[in-house]
Amino acid sequence: MIINNLKLIREKKKISQSELAALLEVSRQTINGIEKNKYNPSLQLALKIAYYLNTPLEDIFQ
């Protein structure tokens, strides 16, 4: 099972779900679904998340 630290990292960087969704060009519901482990992001989306949060991919999804 993948450990998902997206919410923790996003909140630590003081970025809202809506702000991150806008940067990634996805819906806020997509971010919410990823954070609640209801949706697994594509590799492309996971890499974009890591880029915009300036955090290694391995720290977000373990």
Score class of each variant (00 low, 15 high):
residue 48 K to Q: 08
residue 33 G to H: 14
residue 55 T to H: 06
residue 6 L to I: 09
residue 8 L to S: 15
residue 38 K to D: 09
residue 45 L to H: 02
residue 2 I to P: 10
residue 7 K to I: 05
residue 38 K to H: 13
residue 15 I to M: 14
residue 43 L to R: 12
residue 15 I to W: 05
residue 19 E to Y: 09
residue 60 I to K: 00
residue 58 E to R: 08
residue 36 K to A: 12
residue 2 I to S: 10
residue 57 L to P: 05
residue 35 E to G: 01
residue 36 K to I: 11
residue 32 N to S: 13
residue 50 A to I: 04
residue 53 L to D: 01
residue 26 V to Y: 02
residue 6 L to S: 01
residue 50 A to G: 04
residue 45 L to M: 08
residue 12 K to R: 13
residue 49 I to G: 00
residue 28 R to T: 14
residue 62 Q to V: 13
residue 8 L to A: 15
residue 42 S to D: 09
residue 8 L to H: 14
residue 13 K to I: 07
residue 6 L to G: 01
residue 3 I to L: 12
residue 29 Q to K: 13
residue 43 L to P: 13
residue 19 E to D: 10
residue 28 R to M: 13
residue 41 P to S: 03
residue 23 L to Y: 13
residue 50 A to K: 02
residue 16 S to P: 05
residue 33 G to Y: 14
residue 19 E to C: 09
residue 12 K to Q: 13
residue 17 Q to H: 03
residue 20 L to N: 00
residue 18 S to P: 06
residue 10 R to D: 05
residue 52 Y to K: 04
residue 59 D to Q: 14
residue 29 Q to P: 05
residue 20 L to Q: 00
residue 11 E to Q: 12
residue 17 Q to C: 03
residue 31 I to T: 01
residue 3 I to K: 14
residue 16 S to D: 04
residue 37 N to G: 15
residue 25 E to S: 12
residue 46 A to N: 02
residue 15 I to N: 01
residue 9 I to Q: 04
residue 59 D to A: 11
residue 60 I to V: 06
residue 4 N to W: 02
residue 36 K to Q: 14
residue 35 E to H: 02
residue 16 S to T: 13
residue 14 K to N: 15
residue 3 I to C: 14
residue 3 I to T: 13
residue 56 P to H: 06
residue 25 E to Y: 09
residue 48 K to T: 04
residue 29 Q to F: 07
residue 21 A to K: 01
residue 31 I to Q: 00
residue 19 E to F: 09
residue 4 N to A: 03
residue 11 E to M: 13
residue 25 E to R: 13
residue 11 E to L: 12
residue 51 Y to K: 09
residue 49 I to W: 02
residue 42 S to P: 12
residue 15 I to V: 10
residue 6 L to T: 03
residue 31 I to N: 00
residue 53 L to R: 00
residue 1 M to C: 15
residue 30 T to R: 07
residue 36 K to P: 02
residue 33 G to Q: 14
residue 27 S to Q: 05
residue 31 I to R: 00
residue 9 I to W: 07
residue 15 I to F: 08
residue 31 I to D: 00
residue 46 A to V: 06
residue 13 K to V: 07
residue 2 I to Y: 11
residue 10 R to G: 03
residue 29 Q to I: 10
residue 27 S to H: 06
residue 14 K to A: 11
residue 43 L to M: 11
residue 16 S to Y: 03
residue 34 I to A: 01
residue 37 N to E: 06
residue 43 L to K: 10
residue 8 L to C: 14
residue 48 K to I: 04
residue 22 A to W: 07
residue 47 L to S: 09
residue 28 R to W: 15
residue 56 P to E: 07
residue 32 N to W: 09
residue 51 Y to G: 06
residue 58 E to A: 11
residue 47 L to M: 13
residue 31 I to C: 02
residue 4 N to D: 04
residue 51 Y to D: 09
residue 27 S to P: 13
residue 55 T to S: 08
residue 20 L to D: 00
residue 53 L to S: 00
residue 25 E to P: 04
residue 27 S to F: 03
residue 20 L to P: 00
residue 46 A to R: 12
residue 6 L to Y: 00
residue 37 N to S: 12
residue 45 L to F: 05
residue 36 K to W: 06
residue 40 N to P: 13
residue 29 Q to R: 13
residue 13 K to H: 11
residue 52 Y to S: 05
residue 49 I to V: 04
residue 10 R to T: 02
residue 51 Y to S: 07
residue 59 D to Y: 10
residue 46 A to Y: 03
residue 11 E to P: 00
residue 44 Q to D: 14
residue 35 E to F: 02
residue 38 K to A: 10
residue 21 A to R: 02
residue 49 I to T: 01
residue 43 L to C: 14
residue 47 L to H: 09
residue 32 N to I: 15
residue 35 E to Q: 00
residue 30 T to F: 14
residue 18 S to I: 13
residue 12 K to S: 13
residue 34 I to E: 01
residue 50 A to H: 03
residue 22 A to G: 11
residue 57 L to V: 13
residue 32 N to C: 07
residue 41 P to Q: 01
residue 5 N to P: 01
residue 2 I to K: 11
residue 22 A to E: 12
residue 45 L to Y: 01
residue 57 L to C: 08
residue 44 Q to L: 10
residue 59 D to G: 06
residue 57 L to N: 02
residue 47 L to Y: 08
residue 6 L to R: 01
residue 57 L to F: 11
residue 51 Y to H: 11
residue 55 T to F: 06
residue 43 L to I: 11
residue 34 I to R: 01
residue 56 P to A: 08
residue 3 I to V: 12
residue 33 G to V: 10
residue 46 A to H: 01
residue 38 K to R: 13
residue 27 S to C: 06
residue 14 K to D: 08
residue 25 E to W: 07
residue 61 F to E: 01
residue 49 I to R: 00
residue 27 S to A: 06
residue 46 A to K: 15
residue 43 L to V: 09
residue 17 Q to F: 03
residue 38 K to Q: 15
residue 54 N to Y: 05
residue 33 G to W: 14
residue 35 E to T: 02
residue 54 N to R: 08
residue 55 T to N: 03
residue 48 K to P: 00
residue 21 A to I: 03
residue 33 G to E: 15
residue 14 K to W: 06
residue 47 L to G: 05
residue 43 L to Q: 10
residue 19 E to G: 09
residue 2 I to N: 08
residue 48 K to Y: 04
residue 32 N to G: 08
residue 19 E to M: 12
residue 2 I to H: 10
residue 40 N to D: 08
residue 26 V to N: 01
residue 22 A to Y: 09
residue 8 L to I: 15
residue 45 L to G: 00
residue 56 P to S: 08
residue 7 K to Q: 12
residue 61 F to K: 01
residue 2 I to G: 10
residue 39 Y to A: 06
residue 58 E to F: 08
residue 30 T to P: 02
residue 40 N to I: 15
residue 35 E to W: 00
residue 29 Q to D: 14
residue 26 V to A: 03
residue 35 E to I: 03
residue 24 L to Y: 01
residue 23 L to V: 13
residue 49 I to Y: 02
residue 6 L to C: 06
residue 47 L to C: 14
residue 1 M to F: 13
residue 44 Q to G: 12
residue 7 K to F: 05
residue 12 K to L: 14
residue 54 N to M: 09
residue 14 K to Q: 13
residue 1 M to A: 12
residue 62 Q to H: 11
residue 20 L to V: 00
residue 37 N to W: 08
residue 50 A to V: 04
residue 23 L to I: 12
residue 28 R to H: 08
residue 5 N to I: 07
residue 10 R to L: 07
residue 20 L to E: 00
residue 37 N to A: 09
residue 3 I to Y: 08
residue 10 R to Y: 05
residue 51 Y to Q: 09
residue 40 N to C: 15
residue 19 E to N: 08
residue 38 K to W: 14
residue 30 T to N: 03
residue 14 K to G: 15
residue 52 Y to A: 12
residue 29 Q to A: 14
residue 2 I to E: 07
residue 7 K to R: 14
residue 15 I to A: 03
residue 38 K to P: 04
residue 43 L to T: 07
residue 36 K to G: 09
residue 9 I to S: 03
residue 48 K to M: 07
residue 4 N to C: 07
residue 36 K to N: 15
residue 58 E to W: 11
residue 39 Y to M: 11
residue 60 I to F: 06
residue 45 L to W: 02
residue 49 I to N: 00
residue 19 E to T: 12
residue 40 N to M: 15
residue 23 L to S: 07
residue 47 L to N: 08
residue 32 N to T: 10
residue 24 L to M: 06
residue 42 S to G: 11
residue 9 I to P: 01
residue 25 E to M: 12
residue 2 I to W: 10
residue 4 N to Y: 04
residue 20 L to I: 04
residue 46 A to W: 14
residue 32 N to D: 15
residue 7 K to M: 06
